[in-house]
Design a protein around this nucleic acid. Structure first.
Length: 943
RNA sequence: GCAGGGGUAGCCAAGCCUGGCCAACGGCGACAGACUCAAGAUCUGUUCCUGUAGAGGUUCAGGAGUUCAAAUCUCCUCCCCUGCACCA
């Protein structure tokens, strides 16, 4: 029995992959039938992937394989997203000999010669593209159409993107306006994001918009106070300056401002017309002077406040002691006699909310920043959601804070009493060591996603799409509504397509990845050298995608007809990180550029594989198992089954080697089990059992297909790998052994498995003597003729009876000498059916039931027993659902079924059995059990 | 702040849309038995509580409600998570 050794998954998997790929069974063929176009959001190519990434890819291959086997021509292409900074960053690391990077490459078997080449970003892209194809996708047996591989930095693709932007321009969806973006004075534009590719600190920073309110001093000089709560202007009692900070005078347009030195530098990137006056003002020299609150022209003192940080915004803070805990505490510490002015009425607080919350948290000093931050948050939230501006607020009195915030700000700006300054929520440091600032780009280009027409059409289209999970379908219209204009070009060292309307500016990587599935139609011909990039003009794409103009040659016509056949995309599959960026732009660009019948038909979003503790697996943390290593350790089929079955696609799962190992055992177990079944020599037929097996397998097939049609891969795999195996085990346990039937069932079974574990299925297929590929076979469909309700019910009767006997034995702890089983009297069956009939007509009650029952002659004699049974089932039936009721209408000879199985029962309980029917005369029934028997629940007596 | 997701037995995780097939799929773990020299693997059974006859009781974050009937619908409360733009 060392079949375990005979399943060498490494060899088997390699063997079939070689054959599939040599025979190019993956190539999409259009033969006029139904088509299905599926792809995954193509990955960036700037490093090795990990086992988490394989989850989505695997779903895609499973769906594609299922569809192939279900009679569709499937197009499942793949490509590489090469634009942006990542590959440039990687190349830079190699160039400067970053030890970690080099070690990673070496560990993955990269030769020194290749490593040398990888200081070129384009080589990085090519190297990793090859790794993905050979070590990941082919290694997992994916039937991707490898003849269509492409990346986003090829010439042809560039032409394609430029065409797209011409179209957007023509449709007035490209607009220009000022934009503010992170910028390193040394390196130029940088990306601030959690993975911190560009920055060494502050990846979590957000860009905050401070309102800068202009407080005039007596000499006309402006003190610009920065605030996130402009509506509190009516409660200002004083100004805070940091006595130890150095402030500077600057001229902006015709105004003279005083702000911190640090602020000057930042502002110079955000505003035009800033002129340094080279005049410093010490903070402590401002203390004691006064200034005027704009709008209400109240004169207020300037006080010393050490918490006013020159690094944050302007370094000047307006003081609202009634509503800002910091201000309140500073005011207390200053010992000045100033009355706070309450301007917001909020439930649960009195005339000075800031004071009250400080007292609650026991705060006494400006230095207790942690508590003060907490106090600020509590108060702010409360006031924002439930507060109203009071009579001190002039025209704004009586309005809810949450409704008024932006209005106060806009009014102030309109009256030129305020302006806006952008600031990071925390310090951001570039990889070069320089502080990152926010820079204004006055004429940035945007794609106008806010366009009403575009948004509306996209939203409407969503309702006709297949979007999984359902929750995302409901979310999508809201996302589209919320999605704002997106800046699309950038100047700097990164890869991508040159923007056609501004030389040397490159289209950013999200915007060049929206229509790309359409390019898979073209890439095949590019790869086969049937068309060269120079030929791919705007006229070319107009013809291919829009049918405008004339074909220049036959290749054009062929590509056009391919596009007409394959497009639109049926499923675009991607991780949940794409929900709010990639999928919306994917949809909206199609709506903007393509004709309506080419708009996407479906989106499938999957969740992640995380590290233990729910952390996202990250490349930088290196915590993830390399894919080829995992494939060797567990086997590809085991990993595919793991992804398919471990959880719903719509939850995160934790990567746990032990769990994956269980699936590996499962694969070996299935291998052994099937081989054992194949060896069955017996040709014994058992009419009932064989019919039962056929019937139950047919039901499974129906359920599996239903699940697959909804892409419910987990349910499908549960049925295939767990439920069917249980059925077969029951068949064997019941002593079934019809070789012919078993072989048929196995054939069906491995076909069912093929989309999920194609290698093992293919191997067994050939062991069974088949010469073609199971991967090209047709997926099983249920045959209604094979359904036998009676035989299924019979088996259910047996297993229910066994369960009952077990329970009795357990509770009573008797050792059985002999077990008697009594099936219910015929009149009980009859009455049950009558009752169900009456229920259907809504006439079920005691009177009607008894009337119907008594009309049957034999029941007359039974008297009381009849009425008490009738009483009992009336209640029961009312609680039954349709399938419960249906069971009782299936004609079944319980006694016959039990008698057929008596040998099995004897073996199961190692004891003697006798089957009786309750209405037989003179049966052995010392404990008077027989009368307790009811349909489908025979009475039991154990002696 | 904006938009969204979620809290189910020791753990992971179905079910919730379309209320009754639900003591609640499946897996893992645990326990018992089988196979075995043994270990692993595999197979069978048990795994909320009670129970000497197949039963009963109490459960699906907490609270209130709708209903003949609620894990499932409604409302409130508490707690956790995700995305938010020049990052792919």
């Amino acid at each position: 029995m060392n079949t375990i050794k005979s399943y060498d998954y490494t060899v088997v998997e390699k063997k079939w992959q070689d054959k599939w790929f040599k025979d190019r069974i993956y190539e999409a063929k259009k033969d006029g039938g139904k088509k299905f176009f599926i792809h995954f959001a193509y990955p960036g190519v700037s490093g090795y992937l990990h086992v988490g990434h394989m989850r989505g890819f695997t779903y895609c291959d499973i769906i594609a394989r299922y569809k192939r086997m279900s009679g569709y021509n499937v197009l499942f292409p793949a490509g590489f997203h090469a634009s942006g900074i990542p590959s440039v960053a990687f190349a830079k690391k190699v160039e400067r000999g970053d030890r970690e990077t080099i070690a990673l490459l070496q560990k993955n078997g990269c030769s020194d010669e290749i490593i040398k080449k990888l200081s070129d970003p384009r080589e990085v892209v090519h190297y990793f593209s090859k790794v993905y194809v050979e070590d990941y996708w082919k290694r997992f047996g994916f039937l991707i159409d490898y003849s269509r591989l492409m990346d986003t930095i090829s010439k042809g693709y560039n032409r394609f993107i430029q065409w797209q932007f011409h179209k957007l321009y023509q449709k007035n969806l490209l607009i220009q306006k000022p934009h503010f973006a992170p910028y390193c004075p040394q390196c130029g534009p940088v990306a601030v994001d959690k993975s911190e590719t560009d920055v060494s600190k502050g990846g979590n920073a957000e860009i905050l918009e401070f309102t800068i309110i202009k407080f005039k001093m007596r000499d006309g000089t402006i003190l610009p106070a920065a605030t996130l709560r402009p509506e509190t202007i009516f409660g200002v009692t004083n100004m805070w300056v940091n006595p130890d900070a150095i402030y500077q005078k600057i001229r902006i347009d015709n105004e003279i401002w005083i702000c911190s030195k640090e602020c000057t530098k930042k502002l110079s990137y955000q505003m035009e017309n800033i002129e340094l006056l080279y005049e410093e003002v010490k903070g402590k020299d401002l203390v004691g002077k006064t200034c005027f609150v704009p709008l209400i022209n109240r004169e207020i003192p300037i006080l010393s406040g050490t918490f006013a940080d020159p690094n944050i915004a302007t370094g000047l803070v307006m003081s609202v002691p009634a509503h800002a805990p910091y201000d309140w505490i500073a005011l207390v510490e200053s010992k000045k006699d100033i009355d706070p002015i309450q301007i917001i009425d909020v439930k649960g607080f009195g005339t000075n909310p800031a004071k009250e919350v400080c007292e609650q948290l026991n705060i006494h000093s400006q230095t207790e920043t942690e508590k003060l931050d907490q106090a600020t948050e509590i108060l702010y939230k409360k006031e924002f959601h439930t507060g109203f501006l009071n009579e001190n607020c002039g025209v704004y009195a009586g309005i809810k804070v949450s409704d008024i915030k932006d209005q106060v700000r806009n009014d102030l700006i309109e009256k030129k009493l305020a302006t806006v300054m952008r600031e990071f929520s925390e310090e951001v440091i570039c990889r070069c060591g320089e502080k990152v600032v926010i820079k204004q780009i006055p004429d940035q280009w945007f794609i106008k996603y806010s366009d009403e027409n575009l948004t509306e059409m996209s939203k409407q289209h969503v309702s006709s799409m297949n979007i999984y999970p359902q929750e995302y379908k409901e979310e999508m219209p809201k996302v589209l509504e919320w999605f704002d204009d997106r800046a699309v070009i950038r100047k700097g060292s990164w890869l991508g397509t040159e923007f056609p309307f501004k030389k040397d500016w490159i289209i950013e990587p999200i915007s060049d990845s929206t229509l790309y599935p359409a390019y898979y139609i073209v890439s095949k011909y590019v790869n086969e050298n049937k068309i060269i990039s120079d030929e791919m003009t705007n006229e070319f794409f107009d013809y291919i995608f829009l049918g405008i103009g004339k074909a220049k040659n036959n290749t054009w016509r062929t590509i056009r007809s391919d596009f007409e056949y394959w497009y639109p995309v049926d499923i675009n599959l991607g991780g949940k990180e794409h929900k709010t960026v990639h999928f919306p732009v994917f949809l909206m660009n199609h709506v903007a550029v393509m004709p309506e019948r080419k708009w996407p038909k479906g989106i499938f979003v999957h969740w992640w594989v995380t590290q233990k503790g729910r952390e996202k697996i990250s490349k930088s943390k290196g915590g993830a198992e390399p894919i080829p290593q995992a494939a060797t350790t567990y086997g590809v089929d085991a990993m595919r089954l793991y992804y398919a079955h471990v959880g719903s696609p719509f939850v995160d799962v934790e990567w746990d080697p032990e769990v994956v190992n269980k699936y590996k055992n499962r694969i070996i177990n299935i291998w052994k089990f099937i081989n054992q079944l194949i060896k069955t020599r017996s040709t014994k037929e058992d009419k009932h059992l064989d019919k039962w097996l056929k019937s139950i397998i047919n039901r499974r097939i129906q359920k599996i297909i239903d699940a697959f049609e909804k892409y419910d891969i987990r349910v499908a795999s549960n049925e295939i790998f767990f439920e069917i195996q249980k059925d077969l085990q029951w068949y064997l346990k019941r002593n079934g052994g019809n070789k012919k039937l078993l072989e048929e069932t196995i054939t069906t079974w491995i076909k069912l498995m093929t989309p999920i574990i194609p290698h093992l299925a293919e191997e067994i297929w050939h062991i069974l003597g088949r010469k073609n590929y199971i991967s090209n076979e047709t997926y099983p469909t249920p045959n209604p003729m094979d359904i036998s309700e009676e035989d299924e019910l019979g088996e259910q009767l047996i297993s229910q009876t066994i369960k009952d006997i077990h329970e009795i034995l357990k509770v009573t702890r008797i050792k059985a000498k002999k077990i008697h089983i009594y099936t219910a009297s015929s009149w009980k069956h009859k009455m049950m059916q009558q009752a169900i009939e009456l229920e259907k007509e809504n006439k079920l009650d005691m009177k009607n039931l008894m009337k119907t029952a008594i009309s049957e002659l034999e029941m007359k004699d039974l008297g009381k027993e009849v009425s008490s049974y009738a009483n009992k089932i009336i209640g029961e039936i009312k609680k039954m659902n349709e399938s419960d009721k249906k069971q009782y209408t299936i004609p079944i000879d319980e006694k016959k079924h039990l008698e057929q199985s008596v040998d099995f029962l004897k073996k199961e309980f190692s004891t003697d059995f006798e089957i009786h029917k309750a209405d037989e005369k003179n049966i052995y029934d010392p404990m008077k059990r027989a009368k307790l028997a009811v349909p489908l629940r025979p009475a039991i007596f154990i002696e």
